[in-house]
Design a protein around this nucleic acid. Sequence first.
DNA 1: AGAGGAATGATAATCATTATCATTATCAAT
DNA 2: ATTGATAATGATAATGATTATCATTCCTCT
Lengths: 129, 129
Amino acid sequence: MVKLTAQRQAILDLINASNRHWDAEELSRALGDAGQAVGIATVYRGLAFLEAEGLVASIQLADRKRYERADKAHHDHMVCTACGHIEEFAHATIEALQEAAARERGFTISGHQLVMFGRCADCTKGNNT
Amino acid sequence: MVKLTAQRQAILDLINASNRHWDAEELSRALGDAGQAVGIATVYRGLAFLEAEGLVASIQLADRKRYERADKAHHDHMVCTACGHIEEFAHATIEALQEAAARERGFTISGHQLVMFGRCADCTKGNNT
DNA sequence: AGAGGAATGATAATCATTATCATTATCAAT
DNA sequence: ATTGATAATGATAATGATTATCATTCCTCT
């Protein structure tokens, strides 16, 4: 079984090269621009594979799924509804309380997602739409 | 401007009548079964209106949006990935910590969503798929 | 070199949601 | 009650992200 193919490696490299939160199409386009064209279907499959292997992480937003590096400590996200900026934050206490709440209810949690929506610092000041 | 029409009232009544988390199609089907047929497009528009008015609340899951009563204290959700059961939980401390984290970063939060995924108590015991 | 199995890529299909548009209902003023 | 303006409805088409299909290509092992 092959697995980490050239295309998947290219996707992974691109994600690892920054702190961006990419969607599938952005990745396909960026790879094309870099001379390493990868079909959109392959990008989707590659992302599913990379995520299953724990090599990339993702957040499910309302409209699309976005992927980011996995080699960071666990964190959650604040999404600016004005400019799209995504900011990360980690909070050990919140994590611990979540787990406790799940345990109390007999839930075996396999994951969670906390997303806060609002206006980032810049947009709060600048009065963006 | 009219607003709370018969169809919207019917949607609202149905949602208020239980603790279920409905998606648009379930609502349309249930209304049809109850002799009060409402077109699917009207259900979507009605839900958007009702949510904008604060009359219903929603959670955005990976695949679809689900609506529930708004006349409950704020709470978050645990979703069972085996049976689909949705359980609610409220945690004032988590809420407060979230707000503090946002404030620290200059974020003006307008909302948030915390969803935990895993197996509910029954499915953990019963070994469902 | 050839076979078997997996990955790729172009494209069709799917599915939730939104847009379109003709028709109908509602409200206010006559 | 009739008209007119405005908004809502419902059937259906369109959209957009994601997944499935399938012929072709690529590995890897023999």
